[in-house]
Amino acid sequence: MPAEGSTFARRALGQQLRTLRERAEVSQAAAARVLGISPQTMGRLEEGLSARSASDLYMNTLCNLYHVSDKERQLILALAHETRVTAKWGGGWWRPHLDRDITDFDPYAALEHQATRLTAWAVIRLPVLVRTPDYSRAVAWTDTPNAPTHHTEERVHRELKRQARLDDPDFTAEIILSEAALREEWGGPAVMAEQRQHLTELGQRPNISIRVVPFTTRNHIGASLGSFSLLEFPMMPKSRMTQPPIVHIEEHVGDLYLERSKEVARYTSAITELRRLASA
């Protein structure tokens, strides 16, 4: 039976709880005993299948057991609150970037790490996974021109760490670009020349596809869409259920995550059309 309400907040919470538990070298069964719940219920909590176990009492108990920092506790309690709130929704989540600034937690990056397949349509900016350091730096300077240099470098470092996902042969990335994404000169001609060469090299990997919809293509669906990513996930080990796909849309002040089947279907239909139009 599908879990109630939106799954996104639950999945983000479960992923963080599992990461903290494994770092603390606590078994799932031991954590379940401390909470007084079954290992199966603990597994459902970590797989994002239960909002009922996301009480502040349980979360604080686990934080104590895992010896987390104050900032990590703040994050867990915030995600637990969002889990309880979004249990009433039918699927979808808006998360302001200010929330990320407070907790240093990027829920998209966390889900990207779990996904087995990423399909992205990029209109002006290239997806993070395929950027060069100088390209990332130019984008960061544009977004936050008054940020201290070390903040910009920290952002670039985080983006480069995410690119390690491409080294996993079980992860597939399909990147479809508007020609505008190749023509926009982020950082200037030298940066873009290096970036285009990087894309060419990445496209030769067996698990990465990079194609372009040229300017000469008229009246196509991509012209009415902003950039988005579709994330698809593997079967979960405990429940043997497959997590539903998520569409991620990044805006200037926040991120929108869509998971209703009808909404996701409209984006998968758009991807099918973009594939038809794109050239290798």
Rank of each mutant, 00 (worst) to 15 (best):
S269G: 11
H198T: 06
G222M: 00
V247T: 01
E194C: 06
V247R: 00
L230M: 13
L231M: 12
M192L: 11
R240L: 07
R260W: 02
L225N: 04
A265C: 11
F233W: 05
N219F: 13
I210R: 00
L256Q: 05
A190H: 14
L225A: 03
P206V: 13
K262A: 12
G203R: 07
Y257R: 00
P234Q: 09
E263G: 07
V253F: 10
I210F: 02
L199T: 04
M235Q: 08
G203N: 09
E232S: 05
Q195D: 05
A265R: 12
E194Q: 14
L230I: 15
P244S: 10
S227G: 14
V264R: 02
H252L: 08
T216V: 07
S227T: 07
E201I: 08
K262D: 15
I249A: 03
Q243F: 01
Q197Y: 11
G226P: 05
G226E: 09
I249D: 01
E263K: 03
E201Y: 05
H248A: 06
P234A: 06
K262L: 13
I246G: 00
I249V: 15
S227W: 00
I208Q: 01
H252V: 11
P206Q: 14
L199M: 07
H220R: 01
E251L: 07
P214V: 09
V212S: 01
F233M: 06
R218Y: 13
V264S: 06
M241E: 15
L231P: 03
R218N: 09
P234T: 07
L258E: 03
G226R: 06
R218T: 14
E232N: 07
R260A: 01
S209V: 14
I246M: 05
A223G: 12
Q197C: 11
G254C: 08
H220D: 10
M235W: 03
I221L: 13
A265I: 09
R260Y: 02
T200H: 08
E194V: 11
R266D: 13
L225D: 01
D255E: 12
M192N: 04
V264F: 09
E259L: 03
E194S: 10
N207L: 08
